[in-house]
Amino acid sequence: MERNRTPVVSGWFTGTEEDGDFRLLGTRCSACAAVFFPREDAYCRNPHCPGGGELAQTPLSPRGRVWSYTDGRYRPPAPYVSDPDAPWEPYTLIAVELEAEGMVVLGQGAPGVTVADLAVGMEVEVIGGVLNEDAGTVWTTWRFRPVEPAGVTA
């Protein structure tokens, strides 16, 4: 049976890992240009916003620079999904300062990207990926990876 591919959170990104046009989605206030991720659809949170604007969906910069990074050597608690019978595989966590928005967004590293491949300031890009799979669903997410091949950039 074909399993559904479903974003782990609806409306936070668009595209797939295959099509090369994967983007995180935020919202932008038409009155003050404030950008929000995770998306804010109800109200603008800029206290200096003149008001009266609309929040419209906007794709975020596909690239940014590593603000910091770490990994998870131990299994996180639920609701993180992992197979308790399988040995724990550490994942890499990268905080990326997006080019145009100047905001720092957290994401897991693409499969195979370890802390040894990363440095603060390195350029990375966002791509689609799979967070976990269960009986009926492949849960998709966003991931970051170095723009240059891993290990080449200083």
Partner: peptide
């Protein structure tokens, strides 16, 4: 809830991000 579901980002993960940033 989301930071655990989507990222598995525990409290020590955030502490580690700050620590690495200081090192850099």
């Amino acid at each position: 809830w989301l930071r655990f579901r989507v990222l598995g980002a525990t409290n020590p993960a955030y502490f580690a991000l700050y620590a690495r940033r200081r090192m850099a």
